[in-house]
Amino acid sequence: MTRTADLATAALLLLIGLIAVVDSLRLGAGWGSDGPKSGFFPFWLGTLLLVVTVVIAVQAWRRGPGKPFVTREQLRPVMQVLWPAVAMVALTAVIGLYVASALYLAFYMRWVGRHRWLTVVLISIGIPVVTFLVFEQWFLVPMPKGPLETWLGY
């Protein structure tokens, strides 16, 4: 329900506001002799965030449950993008960005797009290779690499 989502978001925002306030008190949230101290702005920003978020939460509560935040049919394609993407980022630490992105591209194209294997293989290998040439070779921006790249001597 939208209300649940609103309240959950509000809870998270409250947490952020609280972190800001607590840390600012540690730094000193006052107005020193030469202007505001380190914690002055974060403290008031955090405090204001807490207040506004509470008001929003109350508004959301009063409004009633509302329409569903997201339906099952809507959520499915979102998760199809999100989870494999999270897996790709997690895998990057182990096998490097190039291989992880190739796997992700192949997985999504085949699983969701049902493209022909030939297309899948060509694109999922081609894109990382182009990325490698552009970033690693051309602009000298190193990307995280894994065993494959080490084996190839990079």
Binding site: M88, T92, Y104, V112, I127
Partner: peptide
């Protein structure tokens, strides 16, 4: 189905860079 993962990959590469 090609564009979507491609954009995600471009975003990831960009964020890292």
């Amino acid at each position: 189905a090609i564009l979507t993962p491609l954009i995600v990959v471009v975003c990831a590469v960009g964020a890292y860079a």
